[in-house]
């Protein structure tokens, strides 16, 4: 089928203008966002698309295909033709945490070809302003002294905040996580943070960007950030200051990926476009307001980065028996 399609489109191209071999892209490129509008991935993608669409000669069509923690949209891209006209906004949730925690996921990391990770998003553990916990140690002590009374919220099962909280507690030597802390899943970062704000849950360890406005307004306090240096606006110790450098692996990221059979020239083109787009001032301002770090990785570095993160998470999932059945 794919060959017929190529033959037909080549035929069409030949018939119209006879360009030697029409250069990619000849039509609109569809970018699938596997999460709903308004989420961290969606905002990041839309912010990036503004400079990108001025660089790419063809229109960019952003499409939200939410569902199943990013699995629905990811599978749609995996099954698409590897012609560079259907690409995915891959995110830590869909391509690191979920694969590590859920053995029944209908896709694997090898089924995607990464074009580039362009954003790193540190994780912050936050509590509401009135919380009794002034430092991360207070929180850890409370979990140890009163097992089963401290609650944390997340944006869903197998999401970064779900895993993040457990990874932090594990680093502080808290075992039997099922019994000692209680997980309150919600639908999305916004709801997870709301649960902390209204007192349903005690803390939330997720990406800095959705938490940034609450920190800025003083409704919430950060206890810890996983970046290597202190973040502007987040007055909290880094994991290095806390003496837990292994937690530096706990970061969110966003990148662009395609089906595994994506041709080299497409990846190359995108590398150039992305390099130009991430220079854009507005884009950078938007990303840094949310505590993100704009950092474009080459395709090879991206794959290595994603795989390393996956390995670390996966080892922990196995060791702590966190797998979703």
């Amino acid at each position: 089928m794919k060959t017929t399609l190529t033959a037909l489109s080549m035929g069409a191209a030949l018939a119209t203008a006879l360009p030697a071999l029409a250069e990619y892209p000849t039509r609109a490129i569809q970018m699938i966002i596997p999460f709903g509008p308004g989420g961290a991935t969606d905002l990041s993608a839309r912010a990036l698309s503004t400079p990108l669409s001025q660089i790419i000669p063809q229109p960019l069509v952003l499409t939200n295909r939410a569902g199943a923690g990013g699995a629905t949209g990811s599978v749609a891209v995996r099954d698409a033709d590897g012609d560079g006209y259907t690409l995915l906004l891959a995110r830590v949730g869909s391509h690191t945490v979920n694969p590590a925690m859920n053995p029944n996921l209908p896709y694997t990391l090898e089924e995607f070809r990464f074009i580039g990770v362009y954003e790193i998003n540190p994780v912050a553990c936050v509590v509401r302003d009135e919380s009794e916990f002034q430092t991360l140690d207070d929180l850890i002590n409370a979990v140890q002294d009163r097992p089963g009374t401290v609650l944390y919220s997340s944006s869903g099962v197998g999401s970064l905040p779900h895993f993040g909280a457990l990874m932090v507690l594990d680093a502080y030597g808290i075992g039997d996580l099922d019994e000692n802390v209680i997980h309150i899943p919600t639908e999305g970062d916004g709801q997870g943070l709301t649960a902390v704000l209204q007192g349903t849950a005690d803390f939330f360890c997720g990406s800095t960007s959705p938490a940034a406005p609450f920190i800025a307004s003083g409704q919430m306090r950060p206890l810890m950030v996983t970046s290597s240096e202190r973040l502007e606006g987040f007055d909290a110790p880094t994991v290095h200051e806390l003496g837990k450098p292994e937690l530096a692996a706990l970061v969110g990221w966003t990148g662009i990926a395609g089906p595994a059979d994506l041709p080299d020239d497409v990846v190359e083109k995108w590398g150039e476009w992305l390099a130009e787009a991430v220079q854009d001032e507005d884009f950078n301002r938007f990303m840094t307001t949310g505590g993100s770090i704009v950092e474009l990785m080459s395709p090879e570095d991206s794959v290595k980065f994603v795989n390393d993160a996956y390995e670390i998470f996966r080892r922990l999932v196995v060791a702590l028996d966190l797998e979703i059945e």
């Binding site: 509008p37 308004g38 969606d42 912010a47 999305g188 940034a212 406005p213 800025a216 307004s217 307001t289």
Partner: peptide
């Protein structure tokens, strides 16, 4: 600063793009 529904979640994004912090 809490979105009441999906639409207001998108509008929050618009505030943040312009360096306004809802809340």
């Amino acid at each position: 600063g809490i979105p009441g529904d999906v639409i207001t979640a998108i509008i929050i994004g618009a505030f943040m793009v312009h360096n306004l912090t809802p809340g």
